[in-house]
Design a protein around this nucleic acid. Structure first.
Lengths: 169, 169
DNA sequence: ATCACAAATGTTATACTATAACAATTATTA
DNA sequence: TAATAATTGTTATAGTATAACATTTGTGAT
């Protein structure tokens, strides 16, 4: 259940490919700023910084890993500091929780209206995660639930396995 | 993230309906005994008792809740006692982990060959959970992953919402 | 501007979840 | 029945998350 299991530092096309990841970060922060401003939500320094740290890779990152970094910049950072920021970012739909790892990852496509639950492919070897957009699966799940009279409000879909790169190595 | 959020003590047709739950338990224990015997796996007293406790309701139950009960019967029960039993039961596919709750639930249909990952509908009101069998969703997920060159090894699918009963109350 | 209020952050403590490491005991089988 | 493997006992600790209350900072009304 530990979230800090070591992973190789490698990327794969589906998630990060050979791209300039700085652009991901800038883009995510820009989107976040705009969304928050539209909503009258305050993207404070701490919140912005935590979002930036979460976006620092395409791997889910745990709260205490974030805290370690934050502490170097803010002597008085404590667990509530990071958990509050995370709670805010989750509420705004800017990040997702990866339940199977007790970790968090940036949402590449924050919904302007309301947050959505992501669906993820997570490589067990390199640790990279990519968010799927599969409305079909969502519809199937909803209808399957509906058959039982059950109404879905939120869901967790996380698939673990090997990304293309790690299948070779 | 606490697993002990209070839930109403109510059942719903999709999961438990108005049934004699003792039969569920007996049935589950019988199946477990047979499976283990076939496999040469040892369903010891502790393991059997933990399985029974997990089956004591259709709600996922946490390790420390199990431990509380176990302690009344076995003064020296400690976290490893219950986690080891859970690990065994997970390996044998007799129970599933509910990631969104750090809790465990019995598998009503343990696979004679290898364990499967469950898919669950979990009521946020009464807490009951029911396992779905939706091979369609599995296939969709696999093909969707395959489009990215990703090979799925295991997955988590958990949907939270309201069961039929709790929609009325 | 400044007061009053709300929101965010600081701070300390603690609850909850899970595993490491090694010792003792119990089963299995040669 | 001795040797070995599997299970359980025991203590300690790592990792994840929140409660509760104090302080500071931002916001809007006047």
């Amino acid at each position: 259940m530990a979230t800090s299991k070591k992973t190789k530092q490698r990327d794969w096309a589906g998630s990060t490919g050979s791209h300039d990841h700085r652009l991901c970060i800038v883009d995510a922060l820009d989107k976040a700023a705009e969304l928050c401003s539209q909503r009258g939500a305050r993207l404070t320094q701490i919140r912005r910084r935590v979002l930036e740290l979460i976006w620092s890779s395409h791997r889910p990152i745990g709260a205490y890993s974030l805290l370690e970094v934050l502490k170097e910049e803010r002597a008085n950072a404590a667990p509530p500091t990071v958990y509050r920021a995370i709670d805010f970012l989750l509420e705004q739909g800017l990040v997702h929780r990866i339940q199977s790892q007790n970790a968090f990852i940036g949402c590449p496509n924050p919904d302007p209206n309301q947050p959505h639950n992501g669906m993820f492919l997570i490589c067990t070897d390199c640790g990279n995660a990519v968010e799927l957009e599969e409305s079909k699966i969502d519809r199937l799940l909803k209808s399957s639930a509906s058959n039982q009279g059950f109404v879905i409000e939120s869901r967790t879909v996380e698939a673990a396995g090997l990304c293309p790169d790690c299948q070779l190595n």
